[in-house]
Amino acid sequence: MKKYAKLLPFFVPGIALYLALFIYPTVTGFYYSLTDWDGLSPSYQFVGADNYANVAKDIIFRKSIVNNIKFMVAVVIVQTVVSLLLALQLSKQTKVNVALRSLYFVPTILSSVSVGFIWTFVYDPSLGLLNGLFETVGLTSWTQNWLGDSGIAIFSIAAVQAWAHIGQMIILFVAGLQAIPEELVESAKLDGATKLQLFLRVIWPLLAPAAAIVVSYTTIQSFKAFDLVFTMTGGGPAYSTEILSTYIYNSAFMNYTFGKASTASVYFLVLISFITFLQFRALRTDRVSY
């Protein structure tokens, strides 16, 4: 015990930060979710589970969950598939591949607000680059009001989210691919495995831990895309791009219902934890061995 006691001072700063920045805010948020606090008044009433019932009945809250799930599914599929395909092409350590990986990583270092403003201009129905490109190549029927059409606005923002973070996922997949023993790949090739068989039987099972990180991280990113959504649409039109983070913001800072916002945050935490758990179970990373 004396040996471990000497190490205790090294853990104290980390534990203190964890308690102050995670445990305390989480417990406090849960407490306020049981009150009607408006965020300004020194006093408030304890309302118990009423907030949870009222938020669950809120049509806008339900719509924000549906929008967030649509957004998440679109981002996870596009970002994971595209980054995996690019990583397979860029996994070799050559000068060209290193340069391309760096190029794909550039959007990641931009702030989400900057990305939002850039793509708002790209999507502009009158002066935007995207519609202008379609018109130039004769695809006028493809032009859209990308952020003004409630049917496609959420997917337009999802495309931007995927574009901005594909570089990160490429790096994670490349790291996973480079960790696969080369002798296993060569052995499969000598046994006559096709490229598809090599990927399905050798590469993908060994890449599952990296894929689990990519999918879970992408999921968390898609639920935290407040700044991108707020910059591009503010949740409109007609709440078609309202997601949980914008709903929480509007409840707390626009409507001054901090109790309601705290309740939505608890729902947010439970939902994202449940989805991430299902993803890890589906990828079966606990059964992967090297």
Rank of each mutant, 00 (worst) to 15 (best):
residue 19 L to I: 13
residue 58 D to G: 00
residue 74 A to V: 13
residue 139 L to F: 15
residue 78 V to Y: 07
residue 46 F to S: 02
residue 162 A to Q: 03
residue 50 D to C: 04
residue 86 L to D: 06
residue 155 F to E: 05
residue 156 S to A: 15
residue 246 T to Y: 09
residue 241 T to S: 11
residue 111 S to Y: 10
residue 176 G to L: 05
residue 261 A to F: 02
residue 73 V to N: 04
residue 215 V to E: 00
residue 20 A to S: 12
residue 269 L to D: 00
residue 242 E to N: 13
residue 179 A to D: 14
residue 268 F to P: 01
residue 168 Q to S: 13
residue 39 G to L: 07
residue 231 T to V: 09
residue 240 S to T: 09
residue 51 N to G: 06
residue 144 Q to P: 05
residue 268 F to R: 01
residue 283 L to I: 08
residue 46 F to C: 01
residue 66 V to T: 12
residue 168 Q to A: 11
residue 65 I to W: 06
residue 234 G to M: 06
residue 271 L to I: 15
residue 185 V to P: 00
residue 36 D to P: 00
residue 106 V to G: 02
residue 277 F to G: 11
residue 36 D to G: 06
residue 169 M to F: 13
residue 114 S to D: 00
residue 29 G to R: 01
residue 272 I to G: 05
residue 203 I to Y: 06
residue 190 L to R: 08
residue 140 T to K: 15
residue 97 N to M: 11
residue 212 A to P: 01
residue 187 S to N: 13
residue 155 F to A: 08
residue 19 L to T: 03
residue 75 V to D: 04
residue 267 Y to I: 04
residue 101 R to V: 11
residue 206 L to A: 10
residue 237 P to R: 06
residue 177 L to C: 06
residue 179 A to C: 07
residue 168 Q to L: 14
residue 172 L to W: 10
residue 253 F to E: 08
residue 129 L to E: 05
residue 179 A to V: 05
residue 164 A to F: 02
residue 107 P to V: 08
residue 138 G to H: 06
residue 85 L to C: 13
residue 273 S to D: 03
residue 238 A to W: 03
residue 256 Y to S: 14
residue 166 I to T: 09
residue 74 A to F: 15
residue 193 A to K: 07
residue 281 R to V: 08
residue 124 D to W: 03
residue 176 G to E: 06
residue 195 K to P: 01
residue 254 M to Y: 13
residue 265 S to V: 01
residue 11 F to G: 00
residue 26 T to Q: 07
residue 177 L to G: 06
residue 129 L to W: 12
residue 60 I to L: 14
residue 179 A to L: 09
residue 30 F to P: 00
residue 153 A to E: 02
residue 42 P to K: 07
